[in-house]
C-alpha cells in the first residue's frame, strides 16, 4: 500500500495514477468477490452436511412411522404373550392383563430408544428407568 502511495506522490502523471487506483480498486473488488464465493461455498457445504433439513417433513413422517410401529409392536407382542400364557396355563384374564401392561411399557421403552432419549448405557444412575 505504502509503495503505491509513494509512486502516486512521486510522479504526478495522470495515467499511472489512475491505473494504480484502478488496480487497487480491482484488487479490492476481487477480494470482496472471492470472500463472497468462499462464503457461498461454505454455506453450500454446511447445507449438504445437514441434508435431513431439506426433507424435514419427510424425515418427520419417517420418524412418526417408526415410533408408531415401535410402540404398536411392543403392545402387540405383549398381547400375544398374554394370550399364549393364558392359553397354556389357564390363568384366563390375569396373563393378558399383566403382559399387556408390560407390553405397553416395552412399547414406550422402544420409542424412547428410537428417539435416543434412552441411552443403552445409562451412566450409573440409570436406576430411574421410567
Amino acid at each position: 500500500m505504502s509503495d503505491r502511495g509513494n509512486s502516486d506522490g512521486q510522479d504526478g502523471a495522470r495515467k499511472p495514477r489512475t491505473s494504480d487506483a484502478d488496480i487497487s480498486g480491482r484488487l479490492r473488488n476481487l477480494d470482496i468477490e472471492l470472500k463472497r464465493v468462499d462464503a457461498e461455498r461454505r454455506l453450500e457445504a454446511a447445507e449438504a452436511n445437514r441434508e435431513p433439513d431439506r426433507t424435514s417433513t419427510v424425515s418427520g413422517m419417517t420418524l412418526a412411522f417408526r415410533l408408531g410401529s415401535e410402540f404398536v409392536a411392543g403392545v402387540l407382542v405383549g398381547a400375544g404373550l398374554g394370550y399364549a400364557v393364558d392359553k397354556v396355563f389357564g390363568t384366563a384374564p390375569l396373563g393378558m392383563i399383566v403382559l399387556l401392561l408390560l407390553g405397553f411399557g416395552a412399547g414406550v421403552l422402544n420409542m424412547m430408544r428410537a428417539t435416543g432419549e434412552f441411552g443403552r448405557k445409562p451412566p450409573g444412575g440409570g436406576g430411574k428407568k421410567g
Binding site: 409392536a73 411392543g74 402387540l76 407382542v77 405383549g78 404373550l81 408390560l102 416395552a106
Partner: peptide
C-alpha cells in the same frame, strides 16, 4: 423382574416393528 420382562418383550417386538414398518 419387571425390567427383564419388559426388555424381553422389547426384544421380541423388534422383528415385528422391523417388518411392519
Amino acid at each position: 423382574p419387571f425390567m427383564v420382562l419388559i426388555e424381553i418383550i422389547s426384544f421380541l417386538s423388534r422383528p415385528i416393528s422391523l417388518s411392519l414398518r
